[in-house]
Write a protein that binds this DNA or RNA. Structure first.
Lengths: 214, 214
DNA sequence: CGCGGGTTTGAGGGGTTTCAATACTAGTGG
DNA sequence: CCACTAGTATTGAAACCCCTCAAACCCGCG
C-alpha cells in the first residue's frame, strides 16, 4: 500500500494530518458501503480488510500492517466496497479524504507515486487470486505466512527467529478460503515437516528456503 | 477499467494516440514481467489477463472488453506482473506509456479520474476474491456469466436474448478456479434448471432475476 | 476424409468440509 | 487463588464437492 515514504513529501504529508487516534482490538473501523470522510494511516498494530456474502461467509482480502494506508481506494471513490476491522489494538493517523486527495492529485509527482501504490496493490491482489484459484491448502497457507514474514521484515518488525502473529486459525482460514479446522490440520503438518511452527501467537519459520520456494 | 470517456478529455486523449493495430485471436499480447513501452485501449474483441504457477496452472484474472485499457497498472509501474492474451481477434489503439502517464498525472482532474478507475478495478477484484474464496462452483460460474452480461449491456454489446460469448469451458474454468470438466457439468445443471444456456458460443440468459440473485 | 480442439459422460479417488466432542487458554469476577 | 466462561485449538468420523483419468462424441477445417 501507499506508505508516503521515499521522499521529502513524507514531511509534507504530515502537515495534512488532522490528529492521531486509537481503536480497540476487534473494533470494526468501517463497514461495506460506508462513505467515510476520513482516511487513516496505520501506525501501530494489525487490521484487515474483508467482505462477507449474504449468508455470512467471510473473505479476508488483505492484512494491513504498520505504515499502510486505510484505505487506498478511498483516494478514488467516496464509497468503499469492503469492511475494515482492527485485529489488535491499533493507532492511526487521521487525514481528511478530500484534502489528501487534493494534495496528491494536485502534484504530478505525488499522483505518480499514488499510481505506483495502486499498481503495487493490484499486483498483490492478482497474486492472491492465483493462490485462491489454483493452489492447494498447504500452498495457500505457506504463501500467506511467507508473505506476512516478508512484509514484516521489510518494515523491521520481525525478529530473526520469527515474529508475533496475532491471527487465529479462523483468520488464516478466511484469508485463504479454507475452514479453520483444515487450517489447524495443515499447520500440524507443517510443524511435523519442520517447515514452521505457529503457537501462542508466535510464528517461527524453521526452513525459510523451502517456505519461500512453495 | 479506465475508459477515457465521460468528458471532453476523450477527444484530447485521441491526440495522444499513436496508431491503431490488430492482433490475431489467441495471440499473447504481453508476458508476465514484461516492461512494455506502449499501452493499449481495446477497441473491438475480447482479451484476458492471466497468471500461471510454475507448474502450469493458469488463473484468469479478468476479461478485457471493448473500451477497457490494457493495462491500467502500467500507469503506475513499468513492469506488469501478469500476461495478457487475445481471446478473439482484437483491434486496439496504441498509446505511449510515458506520454499517457504524463498526460494523466499532469492534470489534477484527469489524475482523479484515473484514481477512480483504479478504485473501480480494485472493487471488482475484491469481489472476485470473495467469489474464489467463499463461493461454490455453481455460484462462481453464475456470477461470472452475470458479470459479463452486465458489462456487455453497459457497453451496448448484448442483445436482449443473450450475447456472443467467445469463451471455452476451459476459460471459464481458469477464471473460476475450477476444472473444465466440472464447468461442463455445472453448465448442464444450469441448462436443466432453466437458468441459462450456453452453446456454440452464444449465451442465453433465461432467468435473469434468479441469476442476478445468486 | 482425417485431424485437433472442445464438449460430454462415467467411474473412481482425494482434498476439504461438516459435524461433534474434547481440551486448551486467557480473561473475569468472586 | 480459584472457579467460571468464552473463545480457540485439536482430534476423529463421515460426507461431499470437486478433481483426475479416460473414453466417446461432436464439430469446424484443412
Amino acid at each position: 500500500m501507499y506508505d508516503g515514504s521515499g521522499a521529502e513529501d513524507g514531511s509534507r504529508i504530515e502537515a495534512l494530518r488532522l490528529r492521531c487516534t486509537t481503536f480497540a482490538a476487534r473494533r470494526t473501523i468501517c463497514y461495506e458501503g460506508d462513505a467515510p470522510t476520513e482516511l487513516f494511516q496505520l501506525f501501530d498494530g494489525w487490521a484487515f480488510r474483508y467482505k462477507v456474502t449474504r449468508d455470512g461467509r467471510r473473505q479476508i482480502l488483505s492484512f494491513i500492517l504498520p505504515g499502510d494506508l486505510i484505505d487506498l481506494p478511498l483516494l478514488g471513490t467516496e464509497r468503499i466496497a469492503h469492511a475494515v476491522k482492527a485485529l489488535t489494538a491499533i493507532s492511526v493517523c487521521v487525514f481528511s479524504r478530500t484534502e489528501l486527495a487534493d494534495f496528491i492529485y494536485g502534484d504530478a509527482e505525488r499522483a505518480r507515486r499514488a499510481g505506483a501504490a495502486f499498481a503495487a496493490q493490484s499486483a498483490a491482489t492478482d497474486e492472491q487470486m492465483l493462490d485462491l484459484g489454483q493452489r492447494s491448502a498447504f500452498e495457500r497457507i505457506a504463501r500467506l505466512l511467507n508473505h506476512l514474514a516478508v512484509q514484516l521484515r521489510k518494515r523491521g518488525l520481525a525478529e530473526a527467529e520469527g515474529f508475533r502473529l496475532p491471527l487465529t486459525q479462523s483468520h488464516i482460514a478466511d484469508a485463504t478460503g479454507l475452514t479453520a479446522v483444515h487450517v489447524g490440520r495443515t499447520l500440524r503438518e507443517m510443524r511435523k515437516s519442520k517447515l514452521l511452527s505457529l503457537a501462542q501467537g508466535w510464528l517461527t519459520i524453521e526452513d525459510p528456503e523451502s517456505l519461500a520456494a512453495i
